[in-house]
Write a protein that binds this DNA or RNA. Structure first.
Length: 197
DNA sequence: CAAGTGATTAGC
DNA sequence: CTAATCACTTGC
């Protein structure tokens, strides 16, 4: 398996990238080098400048969103509701603050480790939500700004998800974004149990 | 269904 | 400086 290239992340179309990321493999090795990985089954796109739901709306540039303005292919981690981390991927070229939020992952390798980190729960509950998958993969804000072509975490290519298995819908939890709350910028793999509810 | 949680941001 | 806000999860 090979890592996705910088070019993959630096395309102009964040919606296209969001769709393409479905079915790809996120890998975050543990400290002793064991692979923990899973298939991405749910994503959301945030289009930066015009998108009221995005942190980088109107090119709002702060300490937190800074990474989005750099090149594509870097991890954008942030804390939400004081407790949970979320995994985003900064995409688009320098100066274009697009990002893709990873909301659902199907565990593949290192499932035992995920169980340990998540406590005793049903397997479908390990990674079926943005906060949960970060716990399962051990992602915290020390991963902020991590290069996805580096050694600490990356995404591997995998077979394409056929178009007729991809579902589209409104994004979650952004009711404040007015007309942008209705945009169908959320993508998931139809019928997959690891898609959040 | 409601509450908890604390970083981040915007507004004085 | 202070207050308001929030791209969620869990346990009642």
């Amino acid at each position: 398996m090979k890592k996705l290239s910088r070019e993959f992340y630096e395309r102009e179309d964040a919606l296209e990238i969001s769709k393409d990321l479905l079915g790809k493999i996120l890998v975050v090795p543990t400290e002793n080098g064991q692979r923990v990985s899973g298939k991405i089954v749910e994503t959301e796109a945030y289009l930066g400048e015009p998108d009221k739901a995005a942190h980088a709306y109107k090119k709002r540039r702060t300490k937190r969103t800074e990474i989005l303005f750099g090149r594509g292919g870097y991890a954008y981690i942030f804390l939400i509701y004081g407790i949970y981390h979320q995994l985003n991927i900064a995409v688009g070229c320098e100066g274009i603050p697009f990002c893709v939020l990873v909301r659902g992952i199907e565990p593949l390798e290192g499932i035992e480790i995920m169980r340990q980190r998540r406590g005793k729960r049903k397997d479908t509950n390990l990674t079926s939500g943005p906060g949960k998958l970060c716990i399962a993969f051990g992602i915290d804000k020390t991963f902020y700004g991590e290069d996805l072509l580096g050694k600490r975490m990356w995404i591997e290519d995998n077979e394409e998800v056929s178009v007729n298995k991809i579902a589209t819908g409104k994004r979650i939890g952004i009711d404040y974004a007015e007309e942008y709350a209705e945009k169908p910028w959320r993508f998931w793999v139809k019928g997959n149990p690891f898609v959040s509810k």
